[in-house]
Design a protein around this nucleic acid. Sequence first.
DNA 1: TAGGCCATCTGGTCCT
DNA 2: AGGACCAGATGGCCTA
Length: 223
Amino acid sequence: MAELKSLGSEAYLALAPGYGPSAFAYGAVRGAAEGPRGAYPGRGADFHAGALGKSAESSGEQSGDEEDGFEAGVKGGSGFEREGKLKGGALGKKPKEQRSLRLSINARERRRMHDLNDALDGLRSVIPYAHSPSVRKLSKIATLLLAKNYILMQAQALEEMRRLVAYLNQGQALSAPLPATLNPFGQSPVYPFGGAAVPGCPEKCTAFTGAASALCKHCNDKP
DNA sequence: TAGGCCATCTGGTCCT
DNA sequence: AGGACCAGATGGCCTA
């Protein structure tokens, strides 16, 4: 599970059951190239011949998206469509109008899904995981679950920071224990005191948390 | 070959 | 009426 190295935190990897490390590993290992699939026609990516073949062999009604100016690939589709029928919708319209309307609706839906995928790509780009070309990108579900956990951990880190600042400023006693680490993602540690020891370390650090603070470089440098 | 993931089509529903 | 959103269905690709 080398692909998980970049994450470096079990808490961060605590995805929902079924989408945990094993499921995540699947998504991460498949290779970032993404292959022909996941490439949208008209988006500068090659469209796999299989889909085009399917398009040709199906009803022939789904060849595309004139409005978008590209030949839409066709995978799947309902039985009705494959039978060359247009069920429901656009009732009372001529078949040609029905088909035109259907193609328009399909194109809109395709654009909507592309926008959704773009947003997911944006989310992937800000999630700390292996963005290596040799590592397959996260699946959609893994992206969402990872993002959720990342947000939770960031909130946890922020809370510890606030507690420490409050303690140092006011000397108030804090009872709640702090997270063991603020470096869950294998990134370079960021210390709030510019890489220096917390003033008064180690007395204050141990008094604050009962153990060395993850926020104090001096504490973390100790073997 | 089975299972996972994905793109696409489609009809229904809700909103403007 | 038209568009956005959603969920189901379908089939292709890839990996174990």
